[in-house]
């Protein structure tokens, strides 16, 4: 054989991340709108249900804050964790990963671009849920701007987890199961006030990354939020996000070139 041919250049991280993000975002128009609606509808339904148990005003103020924050972050868990796990599970099971694996792109660009798109899918649902929750439980809207931090950071943590579940599962059904379990845990442990839970359940709740997004948001409904605690909660989300997205990237490489 003659001398080796010149290799075409690799695609750089950020341009390819942007291309994946844009392509994934466009899928919402085609396939994701019904499920995004379900995600929001589920959270609105839970808040309406809880409104029957939790009263407005100072007596149940903390419980109301937890319900609204939990329902809001649940939208993120539904989409970024559950749907993303299912998406990557399907892609892996059907050989769809081959398309990306035979393109000269960094693994991180595929995982981060897709995770970022799924986190973005949650924006309308979280804003609508938080706004509706504030109206329903008469909570303050003043600090809802914090959603601009809660959604991307808890989105990073949960989508990283969802991507890792989808890419590590060796069967599509397992990916679906893991996604559903993760979302159910976020629902069951995130919406109800932790003060009413047994200690062991609270420990389990503390292990869930979604909890820190819920707590950060819940704290900002107070008249004088403890911003330091909010920052710590968000930092936990960010740290889990970095770790889970790193695991997801490793899982993608493993799944794309499985031998």
């Amino acid at each position: 054989m003659s001398t080796a041919a010149l290799l075409a250049p690799r695609a750089a991280l950020f341009p390819s991340l942007g291309a994946v993000y844009r392509a994934q975002l466009s899928r919402a128009r085609v396939a994701r709108i019904p499920l995004l609606f379900v995600a929001t509808f589920q959270s609105l339904g839970i808040m309406v249900m809880m409104r029957g148990v939790v009263t407005t005003g100072s007596a149940d103020a903390v419980a109301a804050q937890d319900v609204v924050a939990g329902s809001t972050v649940l939208v993120v868990a539904f989409v970024a964790l559950n749907l993303l796990a299912q998406y990557f599970g399907r892609l892996r099971a059907t050989g769809g990963l081959d398309h990306y694996a035979t393109l000269p792109v960094p693994a991180a660009s595929v995982v981060l671009g897709t995770a970022a798109a799924y986190a973005s899918f949650t924006v309308p649902g979280t804003v609508l849920t938080a706004a509706a929750g504030c109206a329903l439980f008469q909570l303050s809207w003043v600090h809802l701007w914090v959603l601009a931090l809660v959604v991307p950071l808890s989105g990073a943590a949960l989508s990283g987890l969802g991507a890792a579940c989808g890419l590590l599962a060796n069967r599509q059904e397992i990916a679906t199961l893991l996604g559903q379990l993760g979302m159910s845990a976020a629902l069951l442990l995130g919406v109800l006030p932790p003060s009413h839970m047994p200690t062991v359940i609270r420990w389990v709740r503390d292990l869930l990354p979604s909890t820190y997004g819920v707590e950060a948001l819940a704290r900002t409904f107070a008249k004088h939020p403890d911003w330091a605690a909010v920052a710590v909660d968000l930092a936990v989300c960010a740290a889990v996000g970095v770790a889970s997205l790193a695991v997801a990237t490793w899982a993608y490489r493993r799944a794309a070139t499985r031998a």
């Binding site: 075409a8 466009s26 050989g95 769809g96 398309h99 694996a101 035979t102």
Partner: peptide
Amino acid sequence: RAARLLAYLGQESTALDEL
């Protein structure tokens, strides 16, 4: 290096179906 030398058309299109 394969991705920098060749273009591959596999049998599945799931990665592109919704685009």
